[in-house]
């Protein structure tokens, strides 16, 4: 079984982003970039499935400008077998991404597609579900555990009240939640080896997909600042203020 993993290059999770002065977007110049954390978990899960003998090949795909080859190489160093970059200059919307991935699914016929549940830049939480719809596959979103049993996939999902377990007929789409696994680090020999692994590029035109946007971002603004309040000296002063000043107790 082939496993397809989709990954995104995003601002490193430890960077505090700033909005550009003209309120057009978030400042991305000279900012440290990385694989989206949920996508790292997706890569790790695919590699573990290969190590357990469930997957024969792990193909990793990213959609973006040539800079995203850096993240694809990292995925190869972590253990993916092949990489595919679909060239796109501006960050396409999730629907367009899902259509591109659907075209890759048609080409590659994976038994399982793993994606992060959301990217930490756009926070959309859409692509996996959209891909599942377009590819006519069942979806196991926000997964905290994945087990393969024959041709079905047992997925434990993190839902609002606790956990839910579903059984999906493969091929299926899984999106990762934080607790699915703890991603490994790439070793130096594997980073060297990854340089010789195949990295192919295609364009949306090659795949016959129109990626023109359906939405316009009119403005990006910083959130309202919350002013720091006062320090209180004791628990009794705190309770007094909550009761009488804030009126919340």
């Amino acid at each position: 079984m082939k496993v397809l993993v989709a990954i995104k290059r995003v601002v490193d999770a430890n960077v505090k982003v700033r909005v550009k002065a003209d309120n057009s977007a978030v400042e991305l110049a000279n900012i440290k970039m990385a694989i989206n954390p949920f996508c790292e978990i997706a890569i790790e899960e695919a590699i573990r499935l290969k190590e357990k003998g469930h997957a024969s090949e792990v193909l990793v795909v990213s959609i973006g400008p040539d800079t995203c080859q850096e993240q694809l190489r990292t995925a190869l160093a972590l253990g993916a077998d092949r990489a595919l970059q679909i060239k796109a200059e501006d960050s396409p919307e999730p629907l367009a991404i899902a259509k591109l991935l659907k075209a890759v699914v048609d080409q590659e016929q994976p038994g399982l597609v793993i994606l992060g549940k959301q990217s930490i830049d756009g926070d959309n939480n859409q692509t996996g579900q959209m891909l599942a719809a377009l590819a006519n596959m069942p979806q196991g979103t926000f997964a905290s555990d994945v087990e393969i049993e024959g041709d079905s996939l047992q997925v434990t999902r993190e839902i609002d009240g606790g956990l839910q377990k579903v059984s999906l007929k493969m091929p299926a789409v899984v999106t990762t939640d934080l607790r699915l696994n703890e991603p490994r680090y790439a070793s130096l020999p594997n980073i060297m080896k990854a340089k010789r692994k195949p990295l192919e590029t295609q364009t949306p035109e090659d795949l016959g997909i129109d990626i023109s946007p359906r939405q316009t971002v009119l403005e990006v603004t910083p959130p309202p600042e919350r002013a720091a309040g006062v320090k209180v000296g004791s628990v009794s002063e705190l309770v007094e203020k909550l009761k009488n000043e804030a009126g919340v107790l």
């Binding site: 505090k16 939405q215 971002v217 009119l218 403005e219 990006v220 603004t221 910083p222 959130p223």
Partner: peptide, 8 residues
Amino acid sequence: NALAKVQS
């Protein structure tokens, strides 16, 4: 950390 005004 940022708010986007989005037109559909």
